[in-house]
């Protein structure tokens, strides 16, 4: 059972990690908790659903092409939405008190959630069953489904790509510089607005991919998943050290594993209490998260 729970945990954890990246990148660059990020993830899931059941993508294309088109188009659509949200609700507040930006983010979150409810209805929506090939593998005593492999492969590829992009390219260096200090970055010739826009393309894009993968995995989606998964993903970002990209990946996977082990060995009803307890203990003894660096106190 241990290995099986580990695989389940890694699958859920990979979804958390993809969503957590959006939180951590926005926080790293803007020091803002983007409460609307979970709802962007949820909208990605709904957009994917609409594309899959539409006649154009769903029935005209072969399955593999339909899946790729769904993931790519949802990611692009949500990235556009992310940029719009930043422009409308966060940019005017960049210089003001941080709490006002938090409240603005909450407003956006309520807006997006209700927009989704009005467009797709208040009931659960189900991804079409034919979208996932019914493949299973047995390794020893462990069963692994097609979706678990797909989620792990896609998310690891995306995370590795993002890591290389941020660490090894000039644009990546500009992102890191902006995260350290906006004004100095601007003096170095970096267009900070452009970098922030880029962050709001990458984060929501990854979130939308996670949303489609989650929809395919659990089949059912609801307009409130943005809150529940958003909270978990945010916890994952804190667990790994917020503002730290590898931290979000490690935090997400770790959170997924802890949750599934907690569900398997303690009890399913108490697993979230277990997860938050570990988070609080970690923050008491290591307030910067697992991989976070200690930031000097400003006097």
């Amino acid at each position: 059972m241990f290995i099986e729970q580990l695989v389940n945990g890694l699958t859920v954890g990979a979804v958390y990690a993809l969503v957590a990246l959006g939180y951590t990148m926005v926080y790293g660059v803007m020091r803002l908790i983007n409460f609307a990020h979970g709802d962007l993830f949820m909208l990605g899931s709904y957009l994917g659903f609409t594309l899959l059941v539409s006649t154009f993508v769903g029935s005209a294309l072969p399955l593999w092409a339909a899946l790729i088109v769904t993931v790519v188009v949802s990611a692009m659509g949500i990235a556009v939405l992310g940029v719009l949200v930043e422009r409308a609700a966060y940019r005017p507040l960049r210089r003001s008190n941080r709490l006002t930006a938090v409240v603005s983010a909450m407003g956006v979150s309520i807006f997006l959630q209700n927009a989704a409810m009005l467009i797709w209805g208040p009931r659960y929506r189900a991804y079409p069953p034919w979208a996932v090939p019914d493949l299973r593998w047995e390794i020893g005593a462990v069963h692994i489904g097609f979706m678990q492999v797909l989620i792990l492969v896609v998310s690891i590829l995306l995370m590795a790509g993002l890591y290389l992009f941020v660490q090894c390219t000039t644009v990546g260096a500009a992102i890191r510089a902006t995260a350290i200090d906006h004004d100095t970055a601007r003096l170095m010739g970096i267009d900070v607005d452009q970098i922030i826009r880029l962050i709001f393309i990458i984060g929501p894009g990854l979130g939308a991919v996670a949303g489609v993968l989650l929809g395919l995995y659990y089949r059912q989606i609801h307009f409130t998943v943005g809150w529940s998964y958003g909270l978990k993903a945010f916890t994952a970002a804190i667990l790994g050290g917020i503002g730290n990209i590898p931290g979000a990946m490690v935090g997400g996977l770790l959170l997924g594993i802890l949750e599934m082990l907690g569900a398997g060995y303690i009890s399913a009803a108490w697993k979230d209490v277990f997860v938050f307890l570990i988070l609080i203990l970690l923050l008491i003894f290591r307030p910067t998260g697992l991989l976070g660096e200690r930031v000097a106190e400003k006097v």
């Binding site: 507040l93 407003g107 956006v108 807006f111 997006l112 209700n114 009005l118």
Partner: peptide, 18 residues
């Protein structure tokens, strides 16, 4: 539609009267 307006109003309020 009320919660939709409401969410938008929260964001607008913070922008124009922080």
């Amino acid at each position: 539609y009320r919660m939709l307006f409401f969410g938008a109003a929260m964001a607008l309020m913070m922008i124009f009267r922080p």
